[in-house]
Design a protein around this nucleic acid. Structure first.
Lengths: 127, 127
DNA sequence: GCTTGACATGGAGTTAACTCCAAGTGTTAT
DNA sequence: ATAACACTTGGAGTTAACTCCATGTCAAGC
């Protein structure tokens, strides 16, 4: 697959795909005789994986480290596991934080809808 | 309260507090005779509110708009409600995305722990 | 009166994560 | 064979959200 095909398939810009490759966020992509990228199954798998992780906000830095370890072989499994566990914790915290903000948002939305703002804004310290 | 007290109370740097004020993310903070910030109840309420919203990732731009509308009075309640509803949707999407990444992460963690990676890495396209 | 220390301001610098650009190359269509 | 076009690279530019810095002021202690 060419870079523009992959770009459409995953809805990511060619620039982002090249950027991810050059910083080591995905392993080097195979090239054809002309030097153009020719994405195979494996490359696509990496892109899909990275896209998923990035969509949840995992930092690029942690993912680069993970990819680097992956490419070093099975000896790095404990280190990879540690990265995953660490990021898992961070995601749990993120969800907790979003949930509490959501509750607050819902509460405010209810107030705005019920037109009860006037008497509550100051008393209840609602912003 | 002085800026350093507020800084400790909310665990935010004085620079961030001043930054928030100058971009309009919080209304102007009252000053004492010497021109130093003297945070009152209301200012602290805004900071706490903004901190909560930012912790969930609401963009500063949207919050500035919300604060601006708030300060313009009750006529802007519908517009404010719209911002809140829009951001609520975004948070729901964010949670969904994080949850699906979490599932994937848990699955991988289980694999790494069970030592079954060798036979699965390539077949199942696990990265 | 002088120094110290917290705080003020405007503006520059930083970081993460892209995004864009200029100059060059290889394949395809006419 | 020449033009068009997708792609290449290295490097510069952008955006969001801070963070830092130089310079200046004011209040308090010695």
């Amino acid at each position: 697959m060419t870079i523009s095909e992959v770009s459409k398939k995953f809805d990511m810009s060619p620039d982002t795909l090249r950027y991810y490759e050059r910083i080591g966020l995905i392993p080097p992509v195979p090239r054809n005789k002309g030097g153009l990228r020719d994405y195979d199954e494996d490359s696509c798998g990496w892109i899909e994986f990275i896209k998923c992780m990035r969509s949840a906000g995992l930092p690029i830095e942690a993912l680069i480290e993970y990819v680097k370890l992956f490419r070093e072989g099975d000896d790095t499994i404990p280190a990879r596991l540690e990265i995953l566990l660490e990021q898992r914790e961070i995601l749990l915290e993120k969800i907790a934080s979003i949930n509490s903000t959501l509750e607050r948002l819902d509460y405010k939305i209810e107030f705005y809808r019920s037109g009860k703002m006037r008497e509550c804004e100051n008393k209840l310290n609602l912003k």
